[in-house]
Amino acid sequence: MNRHWGRDPDRDRPKTSVLVALVLASLTLITLDSRTTSPLDPVRRAVGEVFGPAEVATATAVRPFTAVPDWFRSKDSMQQDLLDLQAENSDLRSQIATDDYARNRLAEYDGLTAAAEGLGYSLVPARVVALGPSQSFSRTVTIDAGSEAGVRPDLTVVNHDGLVGRVLRVTRTTATVLLIVDADSVVGGRVGRSMEVGFVTGRGVLGGDGRLDLELVDDTAIPGKGDAVVTWGSQGGGPYVSGVPIGRVTTVYSSLRETAQRAVVDPYVDFGALDLVGVVVPSGTASDRSVIEADGTLR
């Protein structure tokens, strides 16, 4: 069908047959890809092998520039404190402005090391190199660690704040991660205080008002406001390992139509400003980079 476009590109009356063929081709693709075991998976992987390294290279090239607005954005809420600080010490302020990016990175690595220690797993560190556009209505990111780094599908992804998501598919050098705020994401959650289990689903919204919904299995259990929600995990630690903090309960409401209690969970992770993440791998996984071991050491 790609041959069609070689014939009469500039004829005044366009051929509707071309459009019809393209629409039919699209519908065929949609039908093929809707099946649970999609025949397009090898194609996705092949395309990923090409675009993955390009995304990693672009993200690396633009990182020094994009870090500047990121810094201001994440400090938005501290604007008032910053004003006070400015009045206090202008000398210190100029020092912070120059060192802050490097220091933030160090703090994140420290946090990640502490996370590995707390969870008792090894972590493969990775950077987020691409973010799926909201126009596609799915919340996915690409990270710069792939099968060569020991990453495989259905592994848990965390950062220093808590649960980020799970790995959907990998190429040699990159992996696609489904964020827990995606509308298709379901995570087994446990209310830390009462140990009640339930399911945490995303709403498909990123940023400041990105929230999760928690539905408890036991309809008599009522989660308390401010309770921490962690993952409860499943057999063999896949796709989510247990005990990873997800978020904090902000509001609770019971619906009359449904039998279960629902709660709104505010995730600990700021999904609008994702950068350094860790992929939870079994201890001793072979990797092309330093792995953060359970005891906090780098291997």
């Binding site: 459009l19 393209l22 629409v23 949609i30 397009l40 990923g48 996915t140 990111v141």
Partner: peptide, 29 residues
């Protein structure tokens, strides 16, 4: 004609390149 074919190809790339996870063929269409 040229644009429709280019649109199909570009949409296919959007559908398949990471981090896309929606059903392929939608952006192509």
């Amino acid at each position: 004609q040229f644009a429709a074919v280019l649109g199909f190809a570009a949409g296919l790339a959007l559908d398949l390149a990471p981090p896309a996870d929606h059903i392929a063929g939608r952006w192509a269409l």
